[in-house]
């Protein structure tokens, strides 16, 4: 009981005023798209401030999961909480993480974001439907030339450091290319990863 109260004091939003966080917010999908699963990795977070300074985050990876709303807030407790100009990150995991064996935390294979037979992370998982037709995108692969982690830069406009997650332009591209499922690394997975940059914008 005492421990629970302690945890509340430490982690309550009320006491985190000094902490910098990135708030990812999901833009609702308009019909005919229906979303069931959205999970993706964010790595190599770098915050660029208005004052010209920058902060390099050392956490290996964050797993953002549509079913776990808290995961959409990426806390950076060591980052100065002063006005942010831009945020850089990669969607997905780099080759170093993919050849490191079995890791814990966000990178634990138990998270369902790991292929064992073709070792490596699923960097981005999206499942749902379009006009009643099933969509299943498991995008991963770290071997050149078909790497699937991609650098993203987002200009920050809000004091809460909000980053919009808008799947629509990405899905439209996939649909235009007639790709409804993707379960293996390769050329098509790499092309779908190229479109990750369409998803993220500053609010």
């Amino acid at each position: 009981m005492r421990r629970a109260l302690f945890a509340f004091l430490i982690f309550s939003p009320f006491f985190t005023g000094a902490q910098l966080a990135l708030i990812f917010q999901m833009k609702p999908l308009s019909k005919p798209f229906q979303l069931d699963v959205l999970r993706f990795y964010i790595t190599h977070v770098v915050v660029e401030y208005e004052n010209g300074e920058h902060f390099v985050d050392s956490t290996l990876a964050y797993l953002l999961d549509n079913e776990i709303p808290e995961s959409y807030t990426v806390n950076l407790p060591n980052a100065p909480n002063v006005p942010v100009k831009e945020v850089h990150f990669r969607v997905g995991t780099d080759s170093v993480l993919n050849v490191a064996g079995v890791l814990d935390g966000a990178l634990d294979p138990i998270k369902g974001m790991y292929w064992a037979w073709n070792t490596g992370y699923i960097n981005f998982k999206l499942e749902g439907s379009f006009d009643g037709k099933a969509l299943e995108y498991h995008i991963g692969g770290y071997r050149a030339p078909y790497t699937t982690d991609r650098p993203i830069t987002v200009a920050i406009h809000s004091p809460e450091n909000k980053i919009n997650v808008n799947l629509l332009p990405w899905l439209e591209k996939a649909q235009a290319a007639k790709i409804d499922t993707m379960m293996i690394p390769g050329e098509k997975a790499a092309w779908l990863a190229n479109n990750f940059e369409l998803i993220f914008t500053g609010d």
Partner: peptide
């Protein structure tokens, strides 16, 4: 050669 690390190999027989 799909498995790149000895530690990760054993996931395969356990889950296949």
């Amino acid at each position: 050669g799909g498995v790149n690390h000895l530690d990760a190999q054993a996931i395969n027989p356990i889950t296949h």
